[in-house]
Amino acid sequence: MVEEIVRNLKKDFRVEFRNRSALNLAVAFAGITTLAISLATGGVPFPANIQSVVLWIIMFFCAMNGLAHIFVREEEERTSLFLSLNSSHESIFLSKLIFNVIFFLVLQMIVCPLYIFFLQLQIKSPAVFILTILSGGICISAGTTILGAMVSKAGGRGSLFTIISFPVLLPVLWVAIATTTRSLEDEGYSNYGNIIFFLAFSGVIIAISFLLFRYVWVEE
């Protein structure tokens, strides 16, 4: 199975880098949103809670913009059946999950520095901030992987992905916003309980997605 995962991952990265449309669009979307918010406020810094709300809203919509793409592309290019014939559904799910996690972490690496730069963020507890961004990102990409497969089977409608993802990701966004606010406000804040929550939530979501993926992807 590991060989299949590596093969699928190589294929996905190669296809993505040949036609960088998804990455380009996602990066452009992230950059434009951050710039638009900074421009609209005239560079006046917000209170910490508003800053973290806006940051996570940008990240949520970046995810909605790019994370379903990996499955939708398979359907649009009519390669999903070929993929199913060549790989087990377990390896397909795991390779797409790994791809989505890497893809979203790359997006976060672009969004966060831009956001910090344009909105003049003063981070009081950088360790908690970074860990929240990373673990929250893993949660979002883990949660949306199977939903992307569902959307691709429903014809890849863009707004549908946001509608079905929001209730599932709401606990993550809720806790992420609260933790990010604390990391911006409190110097030396070192409560890692919420980071553990993110990892536990990701674990549960991945396990359930792994079990359910067969019913979404395999035609019986």
Binding site: A154, L160, V204, E219
Partner: peptide
């Protein structure tokens, strides 16, 4: 959105279980 898709029941059921978490 799934319309007349033959896998409508399976996908919708999977979503409901997923959201239940």
């Amino acid at each position: 959105a799934l319309g007349d898709n033959s896998r409508k029941g399976r996908i919708a059921s999977a979503y409901l279980i997923f959201a239940m978490i």
